[in-house]
Simulated scan of single mutants.
Amino acid sequence: MPTKRFFLRSLASALALTLGGAALHFSVLHAATTTAPSFPNKPVRIIVPVAAGGSADKLTRTLAERLSVLWGQSVVVENIAGASGTIGAAKVAKAAPDGYTLLQQGEGLTLNGILFRALPYDTNKSFTPIVKAVVSPQVLVVNPGTGLNTLADYLARAKAQPESISLALPGNGGIAHVAHEILAQETGAKVNYIPYPGGGPAAVDVIAGHANATLITLAAVTEYVRAGRLRALAVTTAYRSPALPQVPTVAEAAQLPGFSVESWQGYFAPVGTPQAVVQKINRDINLVLQSPEIRAQLEAQGFKVAGGTSADLAKSLQAEQPLYAHAIKTAGLALR
């Protein structure tokens, strides 16, 4: 289907350009000598709008621990799950614009703005971008007891026995949902989608056998795959992940040239937050991300460090909005 493949190639190109820009900006950011504001002088709260245990939670807790040391203040991670992340996002949108309440979000911020008819905030106007922290593949994993050993096995069963495979979704309408819908449209596979409040609960239920599979950010399940508790069938990016190099791409395993979906995770502040505070948070998160120990730790989990300026993240948001809108329309996902 040429239209979908054009979207996927365009998305990969747009994100590659964004990440390239982020890399160019980092050396300047790292060397900046701007006087930092007197921030923070009290605890900082980062709201993660999904349940604990998933990739977003793991990333944020890793950063929070290091930022606490750097700032000499507690950095508290608060999980507020529900409504595909919109409840947590709404809480940040209504918070004081002073840098003490931050939001962890990724492409879900854009997707929710497309999928929901009404939101308790304005996706384009309620938040100030701070930094795109990491990018990551999505990975399709199954319970080893399913007998599904390859993506070809998975697709064959999903076509021969429609909806016989239960797929735990880490959020309804998220990047995993969109990616799987594109895969389904390309191959004719039909599964039974079961929404979960986040990647952690979804992975746990697949391990326990309550669901057969999940499509999830790779960093959320690398340890489970290495331990043999989950079987990885394919990653959604055009490249294999160094964290699990034996796992093929969807493009390889399903013979779908051009298939590529890459997710990302970053941080936002309420609109109106002073630019000096935004710049300080951006600079310090970049410092943490670029430390050899943290970079190695995140890459071992399956993340790829991005970094860059707040302007880089703003450009990325602008680039992905029309592309995801096209993908959602093509996949037939209904507005809620």
Rank of each mutant, 00 (worst) to 15 (best):
G228H: 07
L298H: 08
L19E: 14
A251H: 05
V75T: 12
P144S: 11
K304S: 03
L119V: 11
T146F: 13
A168G: 04
L155I: 08
E262S: 07
A12W: 11
I281T: 09
K304C: 07
Q279W: 05
P274A: 13
L230V: 14
M1L: 07
R240M: 13
A238D: 09
S84W: 02
V235H: 15
E293M: 11
G199N: 06
E163P: 01
G188N: 12
L119E: 05
A56K: 07
G199K: 12
Q275N: 12
L8P: 12
A118K: 14
Q246F: 07
E107R: 09
A89R: 02
G266V: 03
A36G: 08
K4S: 10
V221I: 14
G173K: 09
A276W: 08
A314Q: 07
R283V: 12
G113V: 15
I281F: 13
F127P: 04
E186A: 13
R9Q: 14
H180D: 15
A243I: 03
I87E: 02
L289D: 03
P49W: 06
V178C: 05
Q185G: 01
L335I: 09
V75G: 04
A253W: 08
R229E: 06
V69A: 14
K190F: 05
T18Q: 09
P40G: 06
P170T: 01
S27K: 08
H210N: 09
P242V: 15
V221P: 01
A327T: 15
N192A: 06
Y193Q: 04
A311C: 10
P245H: 14
A96Y: 03
A211D: 08
A83Q: 15
A14Q: 14
K190D: 03
L169R: 00
L335D: 04
Y100E: 11
E181H: 14
F303K: 02
N192M: 02
G272P: 05
T62V: 08
V131E: 00
T214A: 13
K280G: 07
G82C: 04
Y224Q: 15
K125Q: 15
E107I: 06
R9I: 04
G332N: 04
A160D: 11
A311F: 10
L333K: 04
R5H: 03
L29T: 01
G174P: 00
R45K: 12
R45Q: 03
G108A: 14
Q246L: 11
I114S: 01
T330Q: 10
V204A: 03
A118N: 06
Q290C: 08
A12M: 02
A156T: 07
P162V: 06
K94F: 02
